[in-house]
Amino acid sequence: MPPQPVGSLPVNASSPPSGPTQAKPLAVALRWPKRWNQKQCAPYVFIAPFFVMFVVFWVGPIVTSIGISLTNWDGIQAPRFVALANYRRLFSSPEFYVAVQNTLVAAVVYDVLMVTLAIGVAMLLDWRHLPWRHFFRASFFVPVTMSLAVVALVFQLIYAKEGGLLNQLIQTVGLPYKVDWLGDTRIALWSIVALRVWRATGYYAIIVLAGLQNIPKELYEVADVDGATPWQSFYWITLPLLKPIMAFVVVTSSIWALQLFDEPWILTKGGPINATLTMVIHLYQHSFQFGELGFGAAIAYVLTMIIAVFSFLQLKLFGSDISK
């Protein structure tokens, strides 16, 4: 029997029954409806906190910032609606294109280098003849655990033009060069990418290693019996079976790469002459340093769109095999 609305029930439980159906006492009527009983309800109650937080701290700001991007809000004074002026200004700013170019180039180079290295390192760590395997596994993960401030200081000493480790090595082998690793506009971005690759490779190598260990060894044994070379085994067995893991690695590392901020901000502040200016640095400078939160929100939206397109293309590239 479907539940009756509370208002139709007699408040006094001792009231005489009316008609063929007896009225229920109020306490009974206020119980969960049968079709919405405790068992069905409990999971939603348990996951509700996540959704409440998600709406308040994620969806809310995302929606609000659309509105902010259409204003000239400086964070302190009342905002004024400027329609699409921030987006027009953004697309006519040469710095924005420099930031997009730096971000995309750095992301692609970082991804290719890092993924290649991560596969190589993972295969090395998976090699059963490797001595000190556990030690090496831990070692490759160390850069991930180090504080960025420490990493930045160490890399400042490595990259220093005067007396830096790299330049000392160059001079030790007799070359008369003194490279300005962070001050030369042609090199600074690659120095940052190298630092990023160093930091991230260990982390992704562990993920790839987990994928490698899930590949049945019998497949390699069969391939061996069939006379396959190691390269053929890698190409026809390892790579296809690693595809879902690779999709995860590439998509998540690309998102991280497109949000490149910490390393260039600490080491170069986006310089010299915007050589390491990334979209997030551009966003940060305008939002918090120049006090243009409306303009900053517009940059954030464009960045989100770029990340969405990038991720979509990568998932397309990896194809439907991922779900298998």
Partner: peptide, 19 residues
């Protein structure tokens, strides 16, 4: 001039070494 970024560690090394 000794050209380095602001507060770069190599500046202090050069100052200590008399460079």
């Amino acid at each position: 001039a000794f050209q380095t970024p602001v507060n770069d560690p190599s500046t202090w090394v050069a100052l200590k070494q008399g460079r």
